[in-house]
Design a protein around this nucleic acid. Structure first.
Lengths: 348, 348
DNA sequence: TTGTAGGCGTTATCAG
DNA sequence: CTGATAACGCCTACAA
């Protein structure tokens, strides 16, 4: 591999000068500058990133920790992140934590000595992360939390307005005439799941409806969870006429369960998911959902990380992205009989 | 950051000894060895990967180049890759090429100077890649191609038996009684798409059926492509009773088109996809598909890369994985009328 | 078995 | 403005 010494020899200058023109770190006469650049171009020379990183105490590597790339929510985040990383000359190291805090810590430790410019992570738990990320920050790496935020997090973060998103979706259902609404939430140790439930309760309250315990079920953020909980919910009396699923995977599971119970969506039961994955377009019926731009989350996070890496006294920023309620085929007003029965009950 | 010199001082030995016990590169007396290990443990010392890489002319970084992580086919591959990489102490740098050869080359050049131990890539085209990967190989990096293989590729590769997979699926449809089959293939400049078409034609031939030009449509590997081509195909006369979609995304698009034409799957038209994504479980009807383990592809590829990195004169290996035909709800025998009409025609 | 020292390819400091 | 040169942290002959 050609190195700076060879370039220096070919261009008839010292290595210092090479470095200076490459990094624009000192004024170099136009004459030498051009000579250097020509040789660089001709030889296709590229500086060794390891040597550079070693010397500078920092690489152009960005570490990205997510729970599991195989979960359809995360690829969009990673894609957004990778795009702005690439555009700025950074590389992305991908890590799957499986929401396992131990694995997360393992990874954090293993990556530190690559001297990454930044760390973007979806924390596996609500536990205080500061202890483990502190070493990153003191090493000058920017740390950005996305999607959910651990306890006492003071650093940068990018999340969406979960409360608001679910609030608007639920309110929409209520506006349609639904009076018996159920919610299936994700694991409540995650702030995102907590906030979505909060939005649901708030909407019910504002709609003058009561929140009932077993109409709100907690499960994992996947189809299996959604399927199982929907089965339970569909046997409740009175049967809810609408379900707010706190992510799309749960909603997909719900769709399966509804079909299996020989009920129809949206005629018998309305359903809204959360995330707005592309897949919501391929189900029957097409799933209504609270859309969030995973791409933008990832892209923004990397931007914050890069900003933070470039300027060490750059203040942490908390970005909250808006969601968009996308109504497709899975919602409808409740059947007349339900409305009737409900009102009868209420007047009793 | 604590470095070897400090460890050496604390343990009362030289830095050479530290390195020796850490890398097991020379016999060290049990006494000193333990003393070193204790200090390492106490200080949580971890060697700087950059310095190590610089010195050894190789890092524990694996570069992974795929078209687009947001496409549901690839996350599984990446997950498999990341798991075995992590298990062996390697890190994965993720690159999205967007099937753009220029971007691919850009990435290849940018990554080289990180001295990665290996390069795993889904090549963006059939073009000869050797020129650009040669520098990797001569730098001692193992290069593995997956999913599809460029012209004249002599290195390691991991693919599935595409011909066989489609052949079996198509034969299954023929066995069910279908006589008018259509195929929607991916871009035919990709070997995977070529091979799948090959399997389709072969099955028709063996089934005594003729292949007709406009019953075989080429498009992009996505729902939009599948949707558009299915629309065309459904207006062909006689209308095919079965469609072989050469990947699941195309099949999802087909499902949409079928529904929009007020036809029913599988009653009016049978459909089989390729890939066997998890999503095939959430469509209505559940999609039959030729399953391939994306996870295993990724995992195997990284294993080959690591083997190649560990032993430079390790011979390249070509791995061909088997597919599994998964029949779910989207296939059925053709309607009686079709069979009747068809036979009338054939006897004419 | 252990220690010493040179060098991996850069960057950055400091003379000139 | 340009050129030496000392680190950066580690590995590895080679010497002891």
């Amino acid at each position: 591999m050609t190195d700076m010494k060879q370039i220096a020899r070919l261009a008839g200058v010292s290595v210092g000068t090479i470095s200076h023109v490459l990094n624009d770190t000192a004024k170099v006469s136009e004459r030498l500058r051009k000579r250097v650049l020509d040789v660089v171009q001709a030889t296709e020379y590229q500086p060794n990133e390891l040597a550079r990183g070693l010397r500078r105490d920092r690489t152009n590597i960005l570490a990205m920790m997510i729970p599991d790339i195989a979960n359809p929510f995360f690829p969009g985040v990673v894609r957004g992140a990778e795009d702005v990383a690439f555009a700025n000359g950074y590389r992305l190291v991908l890590c799957n934590s499986d929401n396992d805090h131990a694995k997360e810590v393992l990874y954090l430790n293993a990556l530190r000595t690559y001297l990454p410019a930044g760390l973007i992570m979806i924390p596996s738990s609500f536990d205080d992360l500061s202890a483990h990320t502190q070493s990153y920050r003191s090493a000058g790496s920017a740390v950005v939390c996305i999607d959910r935020v651990p306890r006492n997090w003071e650093g940068s973060s990018v999340i969406v307005d979960n409360v608001d998103g679910v609030y608007r979706a639920t309110s929409y259902l209520i506006g349609l005439g639904h009076r018996h609404l159920a919610a299936i939430t994700g694991p409540l140790h995650l702030t995102s799941a907590q906030d979505r439930l909060k939005g649901f309760k708030l909407a019910l309250r504002h709609g003058g409806l009561k929140t009932t315990g077993n109409y709100m079920q907690q499960t994992t953020f996947d189809t299996a969870g959604g399927y199982a909980k929907t089965k339970e919910i569909l046997h409740l009396l009175p049967r809810p006429t609408a379900i707010m699923a706190c992510n799309d995977m749960i909603a997909f599971g719900a769709l399966l369960a509804i079909r299996e119970e020989n009920l129809r969506c949206p005629e018998d039961i309305s359903l809204i998911g959360f995330d707005g994955l592309d897949l919501t377009e391929i189900t029957t019926p097409k799933l209504s959902s609270v859309y969030q731009s995973t791409y933008e989350i990832g892209a923004t996070a990397v931007q914050l990380a890069i900003d933070g890496a470039l300027d060490r006294n750059c203040q942490p920023r908390q970005v909250v992205l808006k969601t968009v309620l996308k109504i497709r085929e899975s919602v409808a007003p409740p059947r007349a009989e339900h409305v009737a029965r409900t009102s009868r009950k209420r007047t009793r």
